[in-house]
Design a protein around this nucleic acid. Sequence first.
DNA 1: TATGAATGAGGGTTCATTCAT
DNA 2: CATGAATGAACCCTCATTCAT
Lengths: 213, 213, 213, 213
Amino acid sequence: MTPPPERRRELLATAAEVFAAHGYKATTVRRIADEAGMLAGSLYYHFDSKESILDEILSTFLDELWDGYDAVLAAGLGPRETIEALVTESFREIDRHGSAVAIYQKESRHLARQPRFAYLAESQEKFEKAWLGTLERGVADRVFRADLDIRLTYRFLRDTVWVAASWYRPGGQHSPEEIARQYLSMVLDGVAVRAVRAVRENPEPTAKAHSDS
Amino acid sequence: MTPPPERRRELLATAAEVFAAHGYKATTVRRIADEAGMLAGSLYYHFDSKESILDEILSTFLDELWDGYDAVLAAGLGPRETIEALVTESFREIDRHGSAVAIYQKESRHLARQPRFAYLAESQEKFEKAWLGTLERGVADRVFRADLDIRLTYRFLRDTVWVAASWYRPGGQHSPEEIARQYLSMVLDGVAVRAVRAVRENPEPTAKAHSDS
Amino acid sequence: MTPPPERRRELLATAAEVFAAHGYKATTVRRIADEAGMLAGSLYYHFDSKESILDEILSTFLDELWDGYDAVLAAGLGPRETIEALVTESFREIDRHGSAVAIYQKESRHLARQPRFAYLAESQEKFEKAWLGTLERGVADRVFRADLDIRLTYRFLRDTVWVAASWYRPGGQHSPEEIARQYLSMVLDGVAVRAVRAVRENPEPTAKAHSDS
Amino acid sequence: MTPPPERRRELLATAAEVFAAHGYKATTVRRIADEAGMLAGSLYYHFDSKESILDEILSTFLDELWDGYDAVLAAGLGPRETIEALVTESFREIDRHGSAVAIYQKESRHLARQPRFAYLAESQEKFEKAWLGTLERGVADRVFRADLDIRLTYRFLRDTVWVAASWYRPGGQHSPEEIARQYLSMVLDGVAVRAVRAVRENPEPTAKAHSDS
DNA sequence: TATGAATGAGGGTTCATTCAT
DNA sequence: CATGAATGAACCCTCATTCAT
């Protein structure tokens, strides 16, 4: 026996996909209903409004995201390991809630202005605090470079990760963890090859690069 | 005396800002007109439709972008220098056409499906060819790491740059060139501090890398 | 219990009347909705567009018209009887689809240019072929006068019949058949009185005229 | 030197053509201006409004028409000759003011309701009085058949003539007078051939023809 | 005389939403 | 739970008209 929540989740997933593909505003309630095999009016048995569908998609996603983030932040890891864990967690989230992430990317900026979606701004702040704090800790610990504008670095990391939602498709050849590993490798060590002498001292630079990414 | 094209450009700039801030679909033609100090109907003296405004914003931007890119690609630089030049050029474009870039980011995916905006897909392909080709050249020349999935690297670079349009505001404390420099530094060399020994033994690799990046 | 098509037909009839009275272009969709006791937007639940309403009115009418015409043409009647039957059928059509006929009269010329209404031109051609062919047959059989420009005669007959839609109102004192009879009498025999001698030979000219018209 | 009235007449002719081709409502002022080689706004130097252009086209046409009609009616001709003269005059009018006639046909019905175009209704009445009177005179004089509904005959004659404006093009193979002659021949004597014997016995076929038609 | 730019009243259409069945 | 029909606000766009130049 499938409880009502099941159907609800399906509808939310369907809606999220359409929102992600066409944008919230450009998505008609009829389109969602079509995709779900019902008439537009019928959606209102399940949800109050189009906006409340969006709301539920976004808040569900953020709740799950913070479950993961909070666990990482509470684990007492070093700055680099924290960043690595957060990035990995983020890619897992993209894997599971790709549509929600895409919606978030596109719409959160102007949604955050509305009272109903104030939690987006709050999440954003908390997010910034967590990442920026970790980066600062890393700079202090001489794990991260001190010569960079730290806010720029923060935005760089943040965007670099989340933008991946725009092209990532679950079930592709790379697992979220693998993608996270490569992203971290690029972000932390750069895409340029290191100086020749370093290579000499270190016979397998490629392997090395991987081992600590 | 201001020639007619002047007014047109103003209106396009106004429209671009509103589109960028609220999204194309959510932007009403009346809103644009308000912002421009005229009535909605009056816009149609200057433009055929809301869509044609969008079209002109996007195509103008892409034309300018490719003017810059083509010059870079024709200059015969090495792969690393090419990437550096492209990134720098991109940030300059963000500086000048921030709104257009933001619109492009949000809307190009679904717009590209429409015949009218087919040029978006074409540009995208040309873009990919240029960047991917440069990266491949760089890998062959042992300038860029060979252990990374090159398409992943491409997307990483591409997104990382353009997403900046979402927060960049002209006239801020960093010039586009300065931002480009820091981005390149992160992307090419990573944000992590290199191993202590390597730096000591090798007085200038890191420093060198930075100084001319 | 009225099936859904019923409502649709009502709306079409209402729209046809308004179109016929004021012209297609001058008729607002709000006016139609008013007349139908609903709001303008509600019409779009039943029809795609104002144009598709017009389309359905016209094509429904033409379909019915050709049902009648084809039956007549397949009956193997002589030229005069064929003309009589076609005229009678036409007046019946005017009786039942007066509004559609009036719309057709006013709008078909420029509508026929649009691809969507290409069937108007096709119908027109088929119509011309049927009438012209019958007239030619009649001339060959010495039933119709040979001294007239046959295309002129065709237009004369055609217009003479259809223009009646502009003043004909169903439920008037003359039935469509009665009107057809008188029209045929005028068209075939003329409105002028016959020579004196003819009258002498034929004591009841009036009666006679009617009996075989 | 061309006086201003010349330009005015050109513009009116241009407007009349466009009105006739597309309908009054569907014709935009811009379209007229285009056709006249000027901008829409410039028309307002010459005319008060779109409606006043229509007004002038229609009233000019009716004035000329009545000049001709009044001359005919004042000539003291017999009923048949009067009808012949009126029809001939009408075709001449169609030849010269084809567009105006076409506009009149399509628009007069609903225009006549507006006070500004009350003269259309007046003309219509006068028209009806003249034709109907002549017909009645003809019936009394035993020149026209008495067995027909006279109002029906009137409408038949009236429509039959004016509808020709919808296909008549000046400069064609038939002069207006020739077309009038054939129309009159059809209307007065019918399109059916008279009985063979009657023709033989009677040197004036027209007379006999009727008895057996 | 004509232009260029703008006005403002509507017109067709869309769409989230409601509600009786 | 879902449908069918309707609502009503808002949207894009058209077009007759105005007016300073």
